[in-house]
């Protein structure tokens, strides 16, 4: 029996909707972890179940020709989390506006410190990540921590793959800039963009 995600989804869309339980068994923990990294464990506890209820309701919309199942589930999770953030954030932002401050939405996720060998650089990056906007953090989680490829990220966020590329490029540049602003040694990335003249001379 074909036991692939696509086959399970086909069965769930047909005469055996109970097969969708297999989707839960396979992907629940990954969806929970994604939500936890992006928005915090409390959000994950609240929403991971809703993701699968929503996915079951929308199972006919999954098209295996357009991508894999997990990014599709991440996309549903992203939309649900954004909706929750909208609701939860309105009151706090209203107060912040009254105080004349820019709204800040920092997910309640603390970065682990098992990268201590990175030292000050890690501290700078942690500081930079904490200051990312929510949509930037979504992107960071998907590409750096969930390690989706560009197509998967595009599927999860509902944006063209070219947009994924440009946003990741901007995100890297922004992280470098913010990390540099935090002080410390210069960016050690050897692939830092460099300019080369038409004659091939590296500046």
């Amino acid at each position: 029996m074909d036991d692939s995600d696509a086959a399970v989804m086909r069965a769930a869309c047909g005469d055996t909707p109970a097969r969708f339980a297999q989707v839960f068994e396979r992907h629940h923990d990954a969806v929970w972890a994604y939500l936890a990294r992006a928005w915090g464990p409390e959000v994950a506890d609240d929403l991971a179940g809703e993701v699968f209820v929503a996915a079951f309701a929308r199972r006919h919309h999954f098209d295996p020709m357009k991508g894999e199942l997990r990014p599709w589930l991440f996309g549903i999770a992203t939309n649900l989390a954004r909706g929750r953030a909208r609701t939860a954030g309105r009151a706090s932002r209203a107060v912040q506006r009254l105080r004349g401050r820019a709204p800040v939405d920092v997910p309640a996720v603390e970065l682990v410190d098992d990268a201590a060998e990175l030292g000050q650089r890690a501290s700078q990056l942690r500081s930079a990540i904490a200051r990312l906007r929510p949509e930037e953090r979504e992107l960071l989680v998907l590409y750096a921590w969930e390690e989706l490829d560009y197509a998967g990220i595009a599927q999860a966020l509902g944006i063209p793959i070219g947009t994924v590329r440009s946003r990741i490029s901007r995100l890297r540049a922004r992280l470098r800039e913010m990390a540099a602003d935090a002080g410390g040694p210069p960016d050690p990335d050897p692939a830092r963009p460099r300019r080369i003249t038409a004659s091939g001379e590296t500046l």
């Binding site: 923990d29 929970w32 972890a33 994950a44 990175l118 890690a122 992280l175 470098r176 990335d189």
Partner: peptide, 18 residues
Amino acid sequence: MHLDDELRALRPRVGRPS
């Protein structure tokens, strides 16, 4: 170290749901 590698090293450890 590449920036992406640095970021991966900072991946939050979130455990598993109860």
